[in-house]
């Protein structure tokens, strides 16, 4: 450890960080790891290779990735609209974006299920026009995940767009780029790292989401059962070790995916000459 630092207050700051991280993150997570160690390797493997567990991992990760992708695209459009265009009621609209953060997820789930179910206001319409049922199908899971993931994307892209220097766009235009070229070659590369952060946050939130998804999923084994539900199922059987085993793997998979996204982000930044 260096004797002195350019920035003052290094020691108290790092001590605080370590204590905080230990109490809130590391100790609970190690407790989880310890619980899993109660299982033998064979038992652990048997739990994870169970067909139903694998199916639920597939449902969760596929839904979370698609939801994060959709939230990424629509979140970008919303952030763009909010930053670039003045319109009446903009403040109100802006505040509405954060509502999914504040709403208890169970309430969100019940409301979404009520609206998107086959007899619901929107569900009935979609079923009649497109012949697609949303609630109680895997699609319902994606809808709930988009709902809770959207604010993450909007709120990460917004500040970057706000700080974005319009002079760059003007320069592109004066150098003869058309609007599409300006967007793809100038705006998009600058926004992409922030969009990826939003995507990663939305994805991480969606993978762990229980409250809102459970009401709209239908929870059919092999089809619309999410990993958190299987964890609850194990707990209901008093199988604490089995539940933590699934939780642990979920954590590792999410961590790997988030790490990959972070690496991609760093690579994009470097390619664009930012730091």
């Amino acid at each position: 450890m260096p004797q002195s630092h350019i920035m003052p207050g290094f020691r108290p700051a790092i001590s605080f960080t370590l204590v905080y991280l230990s109490l809130i993150v590391l100790i609970p997570l190690s407790a989880m790891l310890l619980k899993t160690f109660q299982l033998s390797w064979d038992e652990f493997w048997a739990i994870l290779t169970n067909q139903r567990v694998i199916a639920s991992f597939r449902v969760t990760f596929v839904s979370a990735l698609s939801a994060a992708a959709v939230a990424g695209i629509f979140g970008f459009i919303i952030a763009w609209t909010l930053v670039r265009y003045p319109f009446p009621g903009k403040r109100l609209f802006d505040a509405l974006i954060d509502l999914p953060f504040a709403l208890p997820t169970a309430v969100a789930g019940i409301v979404l299920a009520t609206i998107y179910q086959p007899n619901g206001v929107i569900g009935k319409l979609v079923l009649a026009v497109f012949g697609v049922q949303i609630a109680y199908k895997p699609l319902g899971i994606v809808f709930a995940m988009i709902f809770i993931g959207l604010p993450f994307v909007v709120r990460t892209i917004e500040p970057v767009l706000q700080e974005f220097d319009t002079a760059m766009e003007e320069a592109a235009a004066s150098l003869g780029a058309n609007r599409l070229q300006t967007f793809i070659k100038v705006i998009l590369p600058n926004i992409l790292p922030a969009a990826l952060t939003g995507f990663a946050l939305a994805f991480a939130r969606a993978v762990g989401e229980y409250g809102s998804v459970i009401f709209i999923a239908g929870n059919m084994p092999y089809i619309s059962e999410i990993v958190p539900l299987l964890i609850i199922t194990k707990l209901e059987q008093y199988d604490y070790a089995g539940a933590t085993a699934i939780g642990l793997v979920m954590l590792i998979l999410s961590f790997i995916l988030l790490l990959l996204i972070n690496l991609l982000q760093g690579w994009l930044r470097r390619r664009n000459g930012q730091l």
Partner: peptide, 20 residues
């Protein structure tokens, strides 16, 4: 059975409120 809710009250809601 088209929907497996996680609890008895949830099923009652599905049947009574949602009309399923």
């Amino acid at each position: 059975v088209p929907i497996l809710d996680s609890g008895a009250r949830g099923s009652t809601t599905t049947f009574v409120q949602r009309g399923i």
